[in-house]
């Protein structure tokens, strides 16, 4: 009976993995199809959709914009969030628990609600520049990921090391930089990776903030899927998937995947 139970569970697990990978594999397959229709199985193999990417200007612009926004917002969140997390961990500010929850709470709000809030606020404050509005919103989106991982890393960090560095002649900021930063690097890497992915992949917030000429990749992709789905979309998606896997492998080499996921 127990044997049967564990066999059943393993079967479900196998089924789940196949199930989860189905749409991803489909996209990869279609991107190599020789045909413009998505029939299964595909009639032949070709790289033409990858070649046609070279001319997909609006798509490439969107990739570039999303990369910038994700990288910048992650970097800003890393700096602001880490400083805040230090103050929280060290009990430098009152109500540390409330502050920590507040800084991590954008993750708990529905994305569309956040997006609407940003849209309204940008209008009310007269903020017209799409790029900066997007960037500010994405800092808010990425902040919780940084807070969570950095707070978790800091809880394992011995702050006596910072004191030791100061007693050896480094100012407080220099001590943080030379001792704290290298020691919580795994937290930075995993938090930064999740933050980057969250920003790069964000649809519900960005949809309210983009304009005709400034579109992030998820918006542009969805547009294309709705308007004129062809394997070019699959090709760019395939590249995204490969890029993600590459990033995961690099980060895994740096800090270990299990460690990233468990934080």
């Amino acid at each position: 009976m127990a044997l049967f139970g564990s066999l059943f569970c393993r079967l479900v697990l196998g089924f789940v993995i196949v199930f989860l990978f189905l749409p991803i594999l489909i996209v990869l397959t279609v991107s190599f199809s020789s045909s413009a229709v998505f029939a299964f199985p595909p009639p032949g193999f070709s790289l033409r959709w990858y070649a046609s990417l070279a001319n997909a200007d609006s798509m490439l612009q969107a990739v570039w914009l999303s990369t910038q926004i994700a990288a910048l917002s992650t970097a800003i969140s890393l700096v602001l969030g880490t400083l805040c997390a230090i103050a929280i961990t060290r009990g430098m500010i009152p109500g540390a628990k409330v502050v920590a929850t507040f800084m991590a709470s954008p993750l708990m709000l529905p994305g569309l609600v956040l997006g609407i809030a940003f849209l309204q606020a940008a209008r009310d404050f007269g903020l017209r520049d799409t790029y900066s509005t997007l960037l500010i919103a994405h800092v808010v989106i990425t902040m919780p990921f940084i807070m969570r991982t950095v707070l978790a890393s800091l809880s394992l960090f011995d702050f006596a090391m910072v004191d030791a560095a100061r007693m050896l002649g480094r100012s407080y900021p220099a001590a943080l930089w030379t001792v704290l930063v290298p020691n919580i690097l795994p937290g930075f890497v995993s938090g930064g990776l999740f933050a980057f992915i969250a920003s790069f992949d964000n649809y519900p917030v960005s949809i309210f903030l983009v304009d005709v000429r400034t579109k992030t990749l998820p918006i542009q992709l969805l547009n294309q899927v709705e308007m004129s789905p062809d394997p070019t979309v699959a090709a760019i998606s395939a590249l995204l998937i490969l890029g993600t896997i590459a990033a995961l492998i690099v980060c895994d080499r740096l800090v270990g995947l299990k460690r990233m996921a468990s934080i």
Partner: peptide
Amino acid sequence: AAHRRNIGVVFQNYALFPH
């Protein structure tokens, strides 16, 4: 400031830099 005092400290748990 602490870093200008030229005072050495040996901490309770040593606070060596693991990196």
